[in-house]
């Protein structure tokens, strides 16, 4: 993995720094997005934070700042950006809340399956939003990025057994909330169903 130091720029041809930048983006952008998404449960905002974090990495390079571990650096910057967003004027004043925008319907009729799925996802998003951030984070790593327990343990710097425990508890809390709202019950064929 490229380490992002200035010593890697020996190649005089082409654009080695841009190539390194894109390589880092391909490697880590989904993880950065997942971290931001777990914080705010907003896909577009998570992508904005991801792109901003990478642009800041580029600026650091321009300022000749050496970054030993770009992945850790990016995740830290994304986390800070996500927290800063909580204090920003955009967050306070906002545009239209997602609940309102979800009510804007297309003129085209939607298939009933898609409507049901969107409704279920909206409810799931709402319940995920009620969970504690650490629960959302571990669920996002597991199900958005398909990380196994070892990868999550490495990412969160905890033991693998702790990953299993935290994951199990997060799932349990989520299931309880969904069940209490009558939105989830184990189906016969492994499908989530509305009850």
């Amino acid at each position: 993995m490229p380490n992002g130091s200035r010593n890697d720029l020996a190649d005089p041809g082409g654009s080695p720094r841009r190539a390194e930048f894109e390589s880092l983006y391909a490697l880590h952008s989904r993880e950065v997005w997942a971290l931001a998404y777990a914080r705010w449960m907003d896909s577009d905002l998570a992508m904005d934070i991801t792109q901003e974090a990478f642009l800041r990495l580029w600026k650091q390079w321009e300022a000749a700042e050496e970054i030993q571990n770009p992945r850790a650096w990016l995740l830290r910057v994304a986390r800070n950006l996500a927290e800063d967003y909580a204090k920003s004027a955009f967050r306070r004043n906002g545009t239209q809340p997602p609940e309102l925008l979800n009510g804007v319907r297309s003129s085209q009729p939607m298939p009933i399956e898609k409507l049901e799925r969107d409704e279920l996802f909206a409810r799931l998003r709402e319940v995920l939003d009620e969970l504690a951030p650490p629960d959302r984070e571990i669920l996002t790593l597991r199900y958005a990025l398909d990380y196994d327990a070892n990868a999550i343990a490495e990412r969160l710097d905890i033991a693998v057994t702790a990953v299993h425990m935290r994951l199990s508890r997060a799932r349990q809390r989520l299931a309880e909330r969904l069940s209490s709202h009558g939105d989830f019950a184990p189906g016969d064929n492994g499908r989530a169903t509305r009850t």
């Binding site: 894109e22 989904r30 997005w33 896909s43 996802f121 799931l124 199900y143 989830f184 184990p186 492994g190």
Partner: peptide
Amino acid sequence: ADDDLGRLLSRYFKAQMPDPWPAAPPT
């Protein structure tokens, strides 16, 4: 129930992730 919830979460998160994934931001 765990399996069902896992599948539901996978579907949900996959639906939330931008597709196609955007390119790296222009510097």
